[in-house]
């Protein structure tokens, strides 16, 4: 890996983040709020991509990690007075713990079995939330109290009802995620992951502990997804069981596939495009999820590598 290549990669990602920072000065109000949501969802998809794109493991239950963060953070903020920052950390820890447990069990399978096992665990997580409805209020969910919207932290007053603050918090989280992933996938772990994706038996034979590496990838993936969930619940003040439903697992897959699985920026691009495609479609038809279906089929038929994956293949081989 040459130094100039590294510089190019860093420059590209800094440029993307700078663009996201600058665009807030010209975005119309609605798109300003929408982009805040999209960035949080993009973090979720980037977490998903860690497992699917780089390790080749297709999970159909990632919503459970998102929900672990959402509920870990949201329930803490709702029921205790530990404060929002601590609630956010607790949400992330819940996701890390859950992904470790799920990983230890589910990674004993591969391929189709892995998809179905994760889907079922996801379904169990969803049912668990609705079962403990006395605390979670199930489908109806919980609204964050005022104390979780306006609070003091390290001497600063934080007002989460402020759209500007929310946008920049989401952007900061996105930036952190982006660089963590960049460092991981370009480091030794990333190379082992890709080796596993391409040929697991050979990687095993070369002396790598593939199970441990995959477990590591799943925990990183689940933790990032949980961070997105925790941020989503706290920033937008609502947690509900529908976030744990299978539809949200599929969304992460869709965002990643569209943008390009195994590219660092792909999930971000996919999230933005998909959000607007659905938003625009919903102005014309009640059946806006049709867009989701058509996109999935077309992608898998004609662009299995997604947008950035195709670009990397054709024009920009250095794209991480």
């Amino acid at each position: 890996m040459t130094a100039s290549r590294t510089m190019r990669v860093i420059a590209l990602h800094v440029a993307v983040l700078a663009a996201l920072f600058l665009v807030q000065f010209v975005l119309p109000d609605y798109h300003y709020l929408a982009m805040t949501r999209v960035m949080v969802l993009a973090i979720y998809a980037m977490g998903y991509n860690m497992l699917f794109g780089y390790t080749g493991l297709l999970s159909l239950g990632h919503a459970m990690f998102f929900a672990a963060g959402l509920y870990g953070a949201g329930m803490t903020a709702y029921y205790t007075d530990l404060g929002v920052p601590l609630a956010f950390l607790i949400g992330i820890c819940c996701g890390a713990l859950l992904s470790l447990i799920i990983g230890l069990v589910a990674l004993r399978t591969t391929g189709v079995a892995f998809m179905i096992v994760t889907m079922m665990f996801g379904q169990v997580a969803y049912l668990t939330i609705t079962y403990f409805t006395d605390y979670t209020r199930g489908e109806e969910g919980l609204t964050m109290p005022a104390s979780a919207r306006n609070f003091d932290f390290l001497g600063l007053h934080v007002d989460l009802t402020n759209a500007v603050l929310r946008y920049n918090l989401a952007l900061a989280l996105l930036a952190i995620t982006l660089f963590v992933i960049l460092i991981l996938v370009r480091g030794p772990m990333g190379r082992v992951l890709i080796a596993i994706r391409e040929n697991e038996p050979r990687t095993l034979m070369l002396g790598f502990d593939t199970f441990r590496t995959k477990l590591g990838a799943l925990v990183v993936s689940g933790t990032i997804s949980a961070m997105a969930g925790a941020a989503y619940g706290l920033l937008f003040a609502y947690i509900g069981a529908s976030f744990a439903s299978i539809q949200y697992s599929i969304e992460a897959l869709l965002f990643t596939l569209l943008g390009g699985a195994g590219t660092v920026l792909g999930p971000l691009l996919g999230s933005i495009l998909m959000f607007y495609m659905i938003d625009i479609a919903s102005e014309y038809t009640a059946a806006y999820l049709l867009v989701t279906g058509v996109a999935l089929v077309l992608l898998v038929l004609f662009f299995p590598k997604g947008i950035l994956g195709t670009i990397r293949e054709r024009w920009l081989p250095w794209l991480p």
Binding site: L58, I250, L290, T292, G293, V294, L296, V297, V300, L301
Partner: peptide, 11 residues
């Protein structure tokens, strides 16, 4: 699996 998820939504 991905394609049939797409078909699910389309149908």
């Amino acid at each position: 699996i991905v394609a049939t998820i797409g078909m699910l939504y389309i149908i």
